[in-house]
Design a protein around this nucleic acid. Structure first.
Lengths: 106, 106
DNA sequence: TTATTATTTTAATAGTCGTTTAATAATTTA
DNA sequence: TAAATTATTAAACGACTATTAAAATAATAA
């Protein structure tokens, strides 16, 4: 994954409403949730939700599908994992004292 | 970790210069690197570096120590890992089709 | 077709962020 | 002490971001 993509993904998540949207979708798994249902749960206006969906979708962090007149959004776990991997890659590789990190791939 | 702290940490990393700083520090491990050396490697002015160090430090993602007239910065891996864990917590817990995620705790 | 529901788009506004320049602070060397 | 080095702070400016309200689009139901 390239750094510009990582910055785009981090920017998308670096906002309270979008982080809340993404967290709900992570818990939902691949079936996702309808736009309106997310809006209601988070007490955010539909127009504002669309604005934030666009940012998350542009970053590749969510995908959408139409079902009847509902639009379902779901987390894209592959992109999320690529982003997390980028942050920890080569962790402590240049360290004299060895890697101090326990969790996540280090 | 609270969502506001996570947003602060994500915001800190959601900028090209700061992401580059943090990535270098992740590779360095706990000994870290001097501010000036980072500035030189990234071709960023000292004033601009200080601005970005402040954001990363405020987010808890880096720590600093003075050595002579040098200031060394190092990544704070505990905060990084808490942030990563927040993003994947309860992944697919409400999913009918089970968890689709392979990497990272899911 | 007309009306209703669900979502997106557009335009306007206020607030936040990143870079530059110049000045300041802290530490070390001459 | 004076000069040099390393890093931070402050002010100014342009660029970007989030929210709101109103209008538009898309799909279904009456």
């Amino acid at each position: 994954m390239e750094s510009t993509q990582v910055v785009t993904a981090l920017s998308a998540l670096a906002q309270p409403t979008r982080l809340a949207i993404f967290r709900l979708l992570v818990v939902c798994g691949q079936e996702g949730m309808a736009a309106g249902q997310l809006a209601e749960k988070l007490h955010v206006s539909p127009a504002n939700m669309s604005f934030h969906f666009k940012a998350l979708n542009h970053a590749g962090l969510i995908v959408s599908r139409q079902e009847g007149r509902f639009v379902y959004y779901a987390a894209n776990f592959a992109v999320m994992n690529d982003m997390l991997a980028y942050l920890t890659a080569n962790c402590c590789a240049d360290s004299q004292t060895g890697c101090e990190v326990s969790v996540n791939k280090c």
